[in-house]
């Protein structure tokens, strides 16, 4: 009997321990951890910019942290190297460009480190993040040989005062479409060779372009550890001319705009309105006539 009671007590104890540990685990899973991301972007070799993203890590999910103030520095966090101070929006995003005042610092070296320091708030602890990049140049060129078309993308990095080929840089090469890049060849991504070139044979024939048949070729390097995010675009007349068919919307239908009301409806509506309101106007004139009759009688 005693043994039995002991067994019961022990099992209750184990059950409670399990419950407590489960509760502890579940509590851990809802801890909100602040997270800061700093990215370097350069499109068409023009003015580079920085993209800041602040997030909450809630369990296994990320949620945007809005209103986080982040100070951005170039190379060191001294006041003279302050790039700017940004506040993240509702999506937790913010952007900053390198100001002209820091041009001497920017030109001074081929590699730079961007530093982001978030201001501490009640919930969001001060967080520091760094992103190191090497200055890079990206070019895109096209070649048409008979029926074969190819795209050559070259990436070169600054070394001292020279631009040297950047090899093993993975990138997407394709056609800009709504919502992303449609690969120009068979592969999803391409990598530069020892000469810094990535060559793709263009295999997407008969793609609809604009009215003149133009399509936009894009080469994009995404989140490269050394070079950051690079993008270059080129417009080529390799698509099929696409003229939107507006005849459907130009019809006089019940679902068209008010300027394309069906003629039969206009006729009916105006006939009824003119008929009824014409009668009303006539009747008002009759009342005026009654008034005049009254005046005549008085005189």
């Amino acid at each position: 009997m005693r043994m039995k009671r002991f067994k019961i007590n022990r099992s209750w104890f184990l059950f409670l321990a399990l419950l407590i540990s489960c509760a502890a685990i579940s509590q851990d899973s809802i801890i909100r951890t602040p997270s800061l991301i700093l990215r370097y972007f350069c499109s068409d070799n023009k003015v580079p910019y920085l993209f800041v993203q602040s997030k909450w890590k809630v369990g296994k999910k990320y949620e945007p942290a809005k209103g986080i103030v982040v100070k951005l520095y170039l190379d060191n966090d001294s006041g003279s190297n302050l790039l700017g101070k940004v506040t993240t929006n509702e999506d937790g995003d913010a952007k900053a460009i390198i100001p002209p005042t820091l041009k001497p610092v920017w030109d001074n070296s081929e590699t730079h480190t961007f530093i982001g320091i978030s201001e501490a708030t009640k919930e969001f602890d001060e967080t520091r993040i760094e992103a190191a990049i090497t200055k890079t140049k990206i070019t895109i060129d096209t070649l048409t040989d008979g029926e074969t078309r190819s795209i050559t993308v070259n990436v070169s990095a600054l070394n001292g005062t020279d631009w040297v080929p950047a090899k093993d840089v993975e990138m997407k090469i394709g056609i800009s479409r709504l919502g992303g890049i449609l690969s120009a060849g068979d592969e999803d991504t391409y990598t530069t060779d020892s000469t810094g070139n990535a060559i793709v044979e263009f295999k997407k024939d008969s793609l609809p372009g604009d009215v003149k048949g133009n399509i936009v070729l894009v080469a994009r390097v995404e989140d490269n550890d050394q070079y950051g995010n690079l993008q270059i675009e080129k417009t080529v007349p390799w698509g099929v001319s696409f003229t939107p068919d507006n005849t459907f919307f130009n019809q006089r239908t019940l679902w068209s705009t008010r300027f394309r009301t069906p003629a039969w409806l206009l006729f009916m509506a105006y006939s009824i309105v003119i008929g009824v309101w014409g009668t009303i106007v006539y009747l008002v004139l009759q009342i005026v006539k009654i008034k005049k009759l009254s005046k005549n009688t008085t005189t």
Partner: peptide
């Protein structure tokens, strides 16, 4: 005040009411 109830006024009023009743 213009209404004096004369026959010609009455006649017009009657026609107006009939037309209004129809429309």
């Amino acid at each position: 005040s213009f209404w004096n109830g004369e026959a010609n006024q009455e006649k017009i009023r009657d026609r107006v009411i009939t037309i209004l009743c129809i429309i």
